[in-house]
Nucleic acid binder design. Structure first.
Lengths: 109, 109
DNA sequence: GCCTTTCCCTAGAAAGTCTAGGGTTGGGCT
DNA sequence: AGCCCAACCCTAGACTTTCTAGGGAAAGGC
């Protein structure tokens, strides 16, 4: 069975790191923010996001803290660590490099 | 164990289709051509390529034919089908769309 | 008192790539 | 003649990430 695969594998981490680079957010907030920034184009599945957050915390790129939201709800806020900021930079460079290579291959006569 | 993952998942098909769009090639030739077009940046693993070729043939995007190379060797030449050309176009559009969205998210203040 | 929204989470399947092998044959070299 | 390398083809199994498809708790509005 084919599935939709809206995202390119490997880009979710970068997007999440980038969003967190603008300020702490909880998981649900991240999905909202990504949707907003992409003008509804991106709708991140929670089933993809939470495992990703878990992985990134394991790797020390982000750290979590339970706090209360403005709505008076319990939420797990994630913040970038120093390693996370470094990782974001690495991924951005990697992304830039890859897209450049692909563009070159795709466009060459 | 981390692995290198040089390619973005999903891009290999597009690259192969694009290369075949310029003319028939056998598997090994495809790896050479991609390496050449990317100026050594891309080194496609044969363990990734052959399964990909198999998949794409299954899906009717390419078709294979045994022929002899200039070196007098037996080789399986792949050619785009009409469906393959259509698929290439689809993937190019999808790629353009995704990279645009990601660029937007990554660059927004 | 119920319903919706806001939040969190997990198990298992699916897809694609990589690792790490293995194999055949042609032509060049000694 | 024999050997080796280059040019080819292939596969099984591991691995990572994403998706599907659920489930659950609590705050606030009606």
């Amino acid at each position: 069975m084919a599935h939709k695969c809206d995202l390119l594998q490997g880009t979710l981490d970068m997007l999440v790191l980038r969003v967190l680079d603008r300020g702490d957010l909880h998981g649900w907030g991240i999905t909202q923010k990504l949707e907003q920034l992409s003008e509804r184009a991106l709708q991140v599945d929670e089933g993809s996001l939470y495992p990703a957050l878990y992985r990134m915390e394991e790797r020390g790129w982000i750290k979590a803290e339970w706090r209360l939201t403005e709505n008076n709800r319990r939420a797990k806020y994630y913040a970038l660590t120093r390693a996370g900021r470094k990782q974001l930079e690495t991924e951005q460079q990697h992304w830039a490099r890859l897209t450049a290579i692909i563009a070159q291959v795709m466009s060459s006569a």
